[in-house]
Computed example of a mutant assay.
Amino acid sequence: MPFTLATWNINSVRLREGLVLKLLREEAPDVLCLQECKSPVEKIPLEGFRELGYQHIVARGQKGYNGVAILSKLPLEDAGSEDYAQLGHARHVAARLENGVTIHNFYVPAGGDVPDREANEKFGQKLDYLTQMRDAFHAERPGKSILVGDLNIAPREDDVWSHKQLLKVVSHTPVEVEHLGETQDAGGWVDVTRQDIPEGQLYSWWSYRAADWDAADKGRRLDHIWATPDISNAAHGSRVLRAARGWERPSDHAPVFATFDL
């Protein structure tokens, strides 16, 4: 049975509950993975989501920061979470659907503003987080799995508005791109979005700092949907809901979608 999955850094699920409800009503993905929920699990506003048919949730949360949640119309079970780099942050949660597919929802550390681990502890934490993800996938290569989330790296030259101007900007530096590539290779992950949309500029994040984000269009593709090779060919219909970036009091990220015939 086909199902559609979306991933979205919501930048506070309580502040933007109305935007989540709008997405669920208008787009109706079967599964919605949220990052940066900024809420303890018990304070996530579930009632409205449940009224729209999203009866199943697996989440990890903390007060004011980070937080990941998987909302689903389809039954799923909690498949655990990992604290890569031992940061004590709610940055990963996994859930398993009845068809045996495991969904991993990640919020990789942003890494601060200075791309130097000696001068910026947060950048080192980001690299360490990716290294431990890589090592985990090396140790136990995943199968029948989907990995989604705000990975906070735009890996390709056409994943950013200007490759040359962003080479020294956190999220597109060569060392970050290398770390993400090693993580992807370790799990054999297929970039589903680029499998479906192989050419051209593609973004999922636009800074709040731009006076007119749409006209400036200085975006980056920080949000990703990957799948293991055994199910990647079942993926299709990838898209970024750019319009959501223009909703009232929006997140600076737009939702990314893919459909799987599984």
Rank of each mutant, 00 (worst) to 15 (best):
A136G: 00
P155W: 06
E27Y: 06
S232K: 05
G61I: 00
S81D: 13
A258Y: 10
S72M: 04
L74R: 11
R60F: 04
E182S: 07
D212I: 07
P250E: 08
R249E: 15
I225V: 03
F106D: 12
D196C: 13
Q195C: 14
R50Y: 00
P229W: 06
D230W: 14
L5M: 11
E199W: 09
E26N: 14
A211G: 12
A243I: 08
V169I: 12
R117P: 14
G187Y: 06
L15S: 09
V93A: 00
L46A: 00
I70S: 05
D159A: 09
P2C: 13
E199T: 06
P198E: 00
E182M: 09
A69R: 10
P229I: 10
S204K: 14
S145N: 02
D116F: 03
D214Q: 13
R91N: 08
T259M: 09
E27S: 07
S81V: 12
M1W: 01
R91V: 05
P109V: 09
N11R: 11
M133P: 11
P29A: 10
V108L: 11
G88A: 12
K218F: 03
L97M: 10
L87Q: 15
T228Y: 07
Q125K: 14
G188M: 08
E182L: 08
P255N: 02
G149Q: 00
H253K: 09
T173L: 03
H224K: 12
V101G: 06
S145H: 00
A254H: 02
L71A: 03
L130D: 15
Y203Q: 12
F137N: 08
Q132G: 00
L71H: 05
I70T: 12
Y84H: 15
Q55H: 11
P142S: 01
P250R: 04
P174Q: 11
L147N: 01
S232A: 15
Y129K: 14
W205G: 05
R221P: 02
G67L: 01
L76Y: 02
L32Y: 04
W247V: 06
D196E: 11
Q165M: 08
T259D: 06
D150S: 10
K73M: 01
K122T: 10
A235P: 13
G80T: 09
I146T: 06
G237F: 10
T193K: 07
S251P: 11
E51C: 07
N120R: 01
G246P: 04
R239T: 10
Q132L: 02
P45F: 00
A85S: 14
E36T: 14
E176R: 14
Y203R: 03
E176C: 13
F3D: 07
R91D: 10
E77R: 09
Q132A: 01
Q132W: 06
L222N: 13
R25C: 11
I10K: 07
D252V: 07
S81L: 07
E140Q: 15
G187I: 04
D261L: 11
F3H: 08
L97D: 05
R16T: 01
E176A: 13
C33W: 05
R141C: 10
A85L: 04
S251W: 10
A254E: 03
G18N: 11
G53N: 04
L147K: 02
R156M: 09
R134Q: 04
Y203F: 10
G237M: 13
S251Y: 05
H89K: 15
V31I: 15
P142M: 01
